[in-house]
Design a protein around this nucleic acid. Structure first.
Lengths: 202, 202
DNA sequence: ATCATAGTAGACCAGTCGGTCAAGTCAAGG
DNA sequence: CCTTGACTTGACCGACTGGTCTACTATGAT
């Protein structure tokens, strides 16, 4: 019953690419339909509105992440600190590949959407927030383990995890603004210097 | 000759507020005109296009910053490390005030615009990039002085300055997504732990 | 064969978009 | 007083927006 049609997935995939490459507001349903070779009627058969499409796109990408590079980078078989390096590397190569292909750095879809629509749509905002919370918890686990293994001095793992996520998003923002993925490689390693709590600093 | 009309400034001011509170694409010229009590024709007398308006808004805000809180926070009479605290505080109180007033955290106008349009407009992107470069140079000066005064161990000031700016923008992004300015207060102080170069880390 | 149902097709809608334009108002300079 | 030119007014434009609608096809169960 399933392979009957991949229309829904084509729409989803196309929308994700277009939203990522440009922005939510800037991509119209017509363009998505044309690009996905789908008619308007089919679109509205699967998605009740553009907003719902955005929801689905976020879910779709979050799931891809969870089973893709997040699962790889935060692999519990990797030494904790190497996971951070892996993550930075993955971010770098991804953005670089995208830039080499399309000429522009798309940045992080979640970050992009968050800044664009979180003041306009509470539900979307909450959804994006949940994605970030989950990402943060991955950092937290990593930090927990690193402390457990005596690799770093004790610190406030939850807060530091958020700081690391913030730093990652900030780096990507800066890199996108400069349209230069190298920023991530330059600034990336410093993510490990971030710490909140533990040894009293200042 | 000057006080004859404040139309241009009304447009500029209104546009800045609306762009900041929502987004570039989401705010139409009609809305700006209505809100500023100006007619379409008058708008196009002062600004040849919406894009040029965006340019002017960026310039306007950048100048306000340079003479406002940037000048205060990075006051050379303040001890270097205190400048960083001042900056975080200023960011926090600003966002908190905005949220208390309008219910939502607007975030950083430059960051918002950067993620929204830097893939679509090279000139705008370059302009935003210049704003960030200037901000980064403020951090750099601060770090230079801190090292000079023996307050911190030597490090790569230019790179660390960028890292700090990235962290600041990332914090604001996260705070906006959570719609909670307290994030800035929680994560802010860790900006001083960031370091690139100097004592070999890892 | 029939019928329900999922999906497709694309014309159509009201409203909005950024932008144009002709017709003015008005104060300063001659 | 007349002219000039900065500024204002609001009707108007074609293109495009998100979304609706009806008619249609394909499939699979009965």
């Amino acid at each position: 019953m399933n392979p009957a049609s991949d229309t829904r997935e084509r729409i989803l995939h196309t929308a994700r690419e277009l939203f990522h490459a440009r922005s939510y507001a800037d991509v119209g349903i017509k363009e998505i339909c044309d690009s996905a070779q789908v008619q308007k009627g089919s679109f509205y058969h699967f998605f009740p509105s553009k907003r719902e499409l955005a929801m689905a796109v976020i879910d779709d990408m979050a799931e891809d992440w969870a089973h893709g590079f997040i699962a790889e980078a935060f692999d519990r078989d990797l030494p904790p600190l190497e996971r951070l390096d892996y993550m930075i590397d993955a971010a770098y190569y991804w953005q670089k590949a995208a830039k080499d292909l399309e000429g522009r750095m798309p940045g992080c879809l979640f970050g992009n959407l968050a800044l664009e629509i979180s003041t306009r749509d509470e539900v979307l905002r909450a959804k994006l927030n949940a994605v970030f919370a989950k990402a943060s918890s991955q950092f937290e686990e990593t930090l927990d383990e690193a402390i457990e293994q005596g690799l770093i001095a004790p610190l406030d793992c939850a807060a530091t995890a958020q700081a690391m996520l913030a730093y990652l998003e900030g780096m990507i923002l800066l890199a996108k603004t400069r349209n230069d993925p190298e920023v991530i490689r330059e600034l990336g390693p410093a993510i490990k210097t971030l710490r909140i709590g533990g040894a009293a600093e200042n």
